[in-house]
Every structure is written in C-alpha cells, then in structure tokens.
Write a protein that binds this DNA or RNA. Structure first.
Lengths: 341, 341
DNA sequence: CCGATGAACTAGAACGTTCTAGAGTCTCCG
DNA sequence: CGGAGACTCTAGAACGTTCTAGTTCATCGG
C-alpha cells in the first residue's frame, strides 16, 4: 500500500539530465559554476521529478545547520506571540527555527534534548525553570539565549523586558490621574515578580508616596489575584498594579462582585498585554512588552555568538509600553463629595 | 571566540574506548551484540566525552526518520492543548514530533515546506485553509492527517470532533433543565459552524421544539458574540448555544451589561472548553472536545499509513463531552411568578 | 602559435551514522 | 577431540548531500 518508490535524489536528477551529481547540487543551491542553458534544463528536470532537497544530508555534509532551536511552553499565551516575532527575525538573518514544546507532561530537559540531537547551532529558551548549573552545562556546548528569565550569567545571553520600568509606567500613569493610595499585588516566586515589585516601590517613593506603599502577595494565576482582592477589600486603595493580566482578571472579578465599580471606585493595571486584556469586557489597562524588539534582539545575539562577531553585552533590557484601556481613570473626589456635578 | 572543537562523534568515543565505531553504535542504540563489560565501558567514555548522537546522520543512514511533522497556528489556543496530547501519543508510538508554526506573517505553505525538507514521514495539519487540490498534491508524497478540518477526501485522513453531537448534548442539557426557547448563535464561515448549527436544529426538532428554533448569525470572535447578543435582546430566549467560547464570552458580556442575570434570566453554552471558559469569573458551561482521543487517533492513523498496516476508515469522528459549569441553570418559572420561594 | 585565464563541468572524498557480512573466540556435546 | 553454535566484535559500504581538486575546452593577449 505504501509508496515503495524512493524519494528522488540528486543522483536521479543528474542521471535524467545527463550531468554529474555535483553540477545538479550547484544548480539547486544557486551557486555559481553552471551554464545558463544547463541550469535551466536541470531545474526543469528537478521540477518534473518532484525533487525535494534532503536537509539532513545537506546539513550533515556542510557542517552548519543554520538552525536555531526554540523551547517554548504551550501553556503560556505570551510565548505564542513571541514565536511570531522570532520567525520573522530568524528569517531575516537567514536562519531556520526548529521548535520544541514544553507541555504539562513534557519537561524542559526533554525539549532541550531533542533540539541538541537536531544539531541546532544555538538555543533560545522562553522562561523555564532550569537551574543555573544545568544552563551552564548546555551553554558550554552551544550559545544559549534566555528570554524572560533572570539568569544573570557570564555564559548565557539574556533578553528581557525592563520590569522595573514597566511598574514605573503603571504608577506614573495612576499618579497622573490623581491617585495616591496605590497598592501592588505581586507575583510570588515567578520570574520578574521581584523586579516589578521593587519598581513599584521605587516609583511610589519617587512620587513622595512612600507612606502609601502596600504590597499584597499574589501569584501568576487568576485565583491568586482573587485571593489578593479579598485581602485588599478590608481597606480598598483607589488603584492597584498587578503582577500580570491573568491575576488582574481574577482581582477584577472579585472587586466587581463586591460592588466596586472599575475604574469608578478603583483602577487596575495588569502586565503583559495578553489577548485576555484586550477582550472587550475586560479591557484592561496593562503594560505591554515589546515583542518584536525582544525577538530581534534574541536572534541577533544568537547569530552573533554563532558567527563569532561581537555581540554586545550579555544582557538586553527592552523598555515596555503602557497600554491604556478601560480599567483606569481618575479617583473619586475625597470621601463625602458628590459623585458627579 | 567560538568553540572551535568539533563535536564528539562515535569515532571519538570508539578511539578512546579502544573499540570499533560499529560497536559504539550498537551500544548507544541499546542493540544486542555487545558484552556487558564493554557496554559499560563505552557508556562511561561516551558520558565523559559528552557524546550526543547526531540525529541527522542517524536518519540519513537508516532511511527512516520516525519524525511526524505538525503544522499549528500560534493564534489558536485550542491548538496548544492539542499539541500536548500529540506529544504524548507520538512518544508512545515511538515517533518524534517536529513543529512548524503558522503565524500572522508566516503562511501554511511555508510551514509545510519546512517540514517536507526535514524528511518527516507524515504530516499532521491543524485546521488550515489549504485548498483541496494542494492538499492532494502533498498527500501524493506522504501520508497527511488533517485535524479539525472538513476535508472529505480519499487521500487524506481526517480526525475531528462530532460537532452535531456536541450541539445535541448542549440542547439536551438545556431541555433537561426545563428550557424550551433555546436560540443558537452560529459561527458564520468557520469550519464546523454548519455542522454545529444543523445539530442544534435537529436536536430541537427531536425534542418537539421546532417552532422555537432560532438561529442568529455570529462568528468566531468575541465581537461576533456581542453583536449577536444585541440582536437576541429584542426578544430574549431563556437559553443560547454559541458556536465557540470566545463568541460566548462576548455574548455574556453584553447580556450582563443589559441587566440580565446568567443563568437566572438566560443560560449560555459555549463550545471548545478553552482555558477562557474555565476562568472563575466566566465559568462557562461548554462542549469539550476530547483532545487525547483525537490526538491518539491522529497519530495512530499517521503511523498506520507510514507502516502500511490497516488504518481504518479515512474519517474519525470523536464524540465531545459537555462540561457543565456556572452559566446554565433552570429557567425562571413562567412570567409573573415570584423569583424565589 | 603558445601559454595563461577562465568558464563549465566532473570524480571522488567527506560528513556521522547504521547495516551487512564475516572473523575470531568460547562452550558444549557427541 | 572436533565441530556446531552462540557470542562478541570489526571492516567497510551505504545514505544524499557538499566540497576540493581537478580536467576539458574555448578564448585571449602577446
């Protein structure tokens, strides 16, 4: 039942066209060294026989693979947006991407192992929980670029968003609207949480609002935001900045259930600008990471390491951008004042 | 700056261990034909030298690649869930997966082209817009399994959810709760929309509710659901089944904004059981596709075609399962009755 | 008219594996 | 004691490319 016929190879095309294998190789690669007429004839034969180059053989021989391995997590919506940018940047640099996914039942180590077998020339890791020592042993073999990960190491390039700056932007925006009592729900142990929290605190101090600093412990999930909201409700601030969009969504839900209007009674800012925050009924003001710049930076670094050209500093920090939507507004005038003129 | 040292190969290990290349190959593959002591020694040397097999060379030689190509769309959350299942199923069957993504700026043809060069033995396509003729020309080269796609062809295997049955389950559930005036918001031109709509109509007729059949045109986006809700509000039914979760979310939002309580005034059922529907504040009753069964079916078919074993019918239709959550409940007693005893 | 130049083409090795065929060595049984 | 098997191991070809080092043949400058 199987198509027993072998796949057509260079040799088949060469025989059919009456030239040598080497010449067909030259033509297929578009390399110089073949006459115009022959070139055309060979291409015609190749098309007729349905020739498809075998990348494995090609790469085996030529040593180089021009292949970048990418490890991403299927559960993280942000990773998918990033993949889009990465494909673009890799294409421009003349490299191919090969993807390996982390799933609930497929760990990071497995994902990386597959890529190593595929002879990638560099690895781009999205997030991930790998310990620094493991990262180092991989980086000893081939260049590694870690994205959205706080690995401050000599042997690994790191590309990430300026989390502190993102928090500053959120706080600045809220202060500009007139808020003073601004709380922060943090991300617990997640990458970036410490930086976002510190950024919030610093921005508050910069605005002379040190006395209003209030950090509530949270996490990356919707339920973390919901729990934090319960705690905030004891004495609600007029605004909250939240570790990420998902957590902010949970927080929003609980606030509204308790009769608070957003942004009337309380303003909320998320982080990441995920699709969730863009949904009309959520319409969350949030801090967006600059995906294209980060993707381009990661590819640029990987390629520089591969090709041995100067690559700039190990760490690349990309400024984020505040996306103002419907969950932030001016605070109500001081207590007791009428709601509206 | 680059590590100029070649990667360690079988030959390096063989030299170091004082045996032949062939024997090292045997040991590394775990094939029979090596003594216990030698086996151990070779493994030790391999570990010490950091040997990593080169899958390209391996596959080049052995002809087979045991590689399945998967084309998915980064924008579709459902695809990511499916990837998880696919990795599991492929692993069990002894095949590896190689992924190629469709992005807003990278088309299906490009994605497939990459996979063909990688010498995959079969292709699994998620959704996709490829015309039937193109699909056929690919299927002439290697087995193709299309998932979530209505390609009823002789040369392509198709695995998809039983959309009609899903609609039946939704309607049965609502009727069981006491609803009679049940509307349907369809998915316009999207794959599966026609089947889901027809299933709804048939189920209504089966329950003797033909006179209550009411189809409102919608789509796959949140805004489509919102628009449909506006139209429904003129004369609200007591329940709605919606083409998918995202559209249902938009619909829910508009209904609530107009002061209707869900499920008090109106019940809503979505489709797909995406992460969105599981969010606490959405908590949407929805029809879940059986991801693991579909994934296993797709792999099973692909492998059967590759290996030439009998593969069953070209089309595999998997029954979905209703996930009852918070957006469905009994309808209010007839108009004029009190709200609660 | 001769050697140099260059364009078009080719033979054969190489890449790192796996596979086939066979060479040793040991054990066991008649 | 001799040979059949069973093991362990090895040499060398193959996979489909690319690359190096040619060879051939026409053209050209002196």
């Amino acid at each position: 039942m199987q198509s027993a016929e072998r796949r057509t190879t260079l040799a088949d095309v060469a025989a059919e066209a009456g030239v040598s294998v080497a010449l067909v190789s030259i033509v297929m690669r578009g390399a110089p060294g073949a006459g115009a007429a022959t070139r055309e004839r060979v291409l015609e034969v190749a098309r007729r026989l349905g020739y498809q180059p075998d990348s494995r053989a090609r790469l085996l021989r030529s040593g180089r693979s021009r292949l970048l391995g990418v490890v991403f997590d299927v559960r993280h919506p942000f990773h998918h947006d990033l993949l889009t940018g990465l494909y673009d940047a890799a294409g421009k640099a003349g490299y191919q991407l090969t993807l390996s996914a982390v799933t609930p039942r497929r760990g990071e180590r497995t994902a990386i192992g597959d890529l190593l077998q595929d002879r990638c020339e560099a690895l781009v890791l999205f997030g991930g929980q790998l310990r620094a020592s493991e990262l180092a042993s991989i980086a000893a073999r081939l260049p590694v670029v870690a994205m959205m990960r706080a690995a401050r190491r000599r042997d690994v390039d790191v590309v990430h968003n300026d989390d502190a700056l993102g928090s500053h932007q959120a706080v600045d925006h809220l202060v500009g609207l007139g808020h003073r009592r601004i709380a922060h729900v943090d991300g617990g142990q997640w990458h970036g949480s410490a930086e976002r929290r510190a950024g919030y605190q610093e921005a508050m101090r910069r605005h002379g609002l040190a006395e209003h600093i209030r950090v509530v412990s949270g996490g990356a999930g919707e339920e973390d935001g919901a729990r934090a909201a319960e705690r905030l409700l004891v004495d609600p601030p007029t605004a909250v900045t939240v570790f990420n969009d998902l957590s902010a969504t949970g927080l929003l839900d609980v606030l509204r259930r308790h009769g608070l209007s957003v942004p009337g009674d309380i303003s909320v800012v998320g982080y990441d600008d995920t699709g969730l925050s863009r949904l009309a009924h959520i319409d969350l003001t949030t801090v967006g990471q600059d995906i294209d710049t980060m993707a381009a930076g990661a590819i640029e670094r990987a390629v520089a390491r591969i090709e041995g050209t100067p690559a700039g500093p190990r760490e690349m920090v990309v400024p984020p951008r505040l996306m103002v939507r419907g969950t932030t507004g001016a605070p109500r005038p001081a207590a007791g004042a009428s709601r509206q003129p």
